[in-house]
Design a protein around this nucleic acid. Sequence first.
DNA 1: TATTTAACCTGGACGC
DNA 2: TGCGTCCAGGTTAAAT
Length: 297
Amino acid sequence: MPELPEVETVRDGLARWVAGRTVARVKVTHPRSVRRHLAGADDFAARLAGLRIEAASRRGKYLWLPLADPDGSRRECVVAHLGMSGQLLVQPPDSSDEKHLHVRITFADGGRELRFVDQRTFGGMMLDELVPAPDRPIELVPRSIAHIARDPLDPVFDDALWNVRLRRRDSAVKRALLDQSLVSGIGNIYADEALWRAGLHGERRGLTLTRSAVTGLLAEVRDVLTESLGAGGTSFDALYVNVNGQSGYFERSLNVYGREGKPCRRCGTAIRRSAFMNRSSYFCPSCQRPPRVPRNP
DNA sequence: TATTTAACCTGGACGC
DNA sequence: TGCGTCCAGGTTAAAT
């Protein structure tokens, strides 16, 4: 599933293959993929045609492509989110269509086209206005994602603020890791991996954690995200690939996620799986002691 | 206000 | 073979 390392891998590919090129034509074949563009698919296609893509940017799991400003009035961008199964592929124009191809963007140079492919259609694209970031006005972010927190690999990420906000929460620490308005880019896989590395059970409440535990958890989050990024991300199936259709290979480095019943790589205890927030949580019952008085998370 | 839950969506795996 | 059920999970509106 695309979390920060996977999305950053895609962003890097977009920067290489798409930045600097001018859009010729946009064809939306599945309107749900542009549902967040409230003016509709035709408006999305018409407004994007003829504009030059300047760069490829990312915050957390969101991508955006800043567009050259045609008249100087305002700055716009294409915002994209991969959801659970979205792919942004850079393909030769004559290659066959993917089964779940929903948006096709062709370029004025006649070269490789950009395709948005999405089996489960949780992802999507939209046009949006760039506005000054609330915490750093010199930086521009899409208006629709200005509420998304910075991610742990962002040089401007505020470690002290993270520590205070997490330790104020009367809520499970895993829930906090998945809250994109607190820290972005982390999904179910890397939340479980970072908690295992930190020796913390995901149902521990923020209020009960020490300052050093929270600082240590952030360090583990950074480590696992950085290592996965170096491996091109995690691909369980064909649903996550980079812009050239290649899988990442971090799956083999996962310590708990998807390893139910297998021995913990630290102590040998069988990894357990439990339901949490309508999804699965994997943990080592020895290394990650559950809270003594479990409350409804 | 802070926190939690449900809904959205598709296709693969599995049991009968 | 075919059918029904479960599962995967990021985001957000609605509920508590």
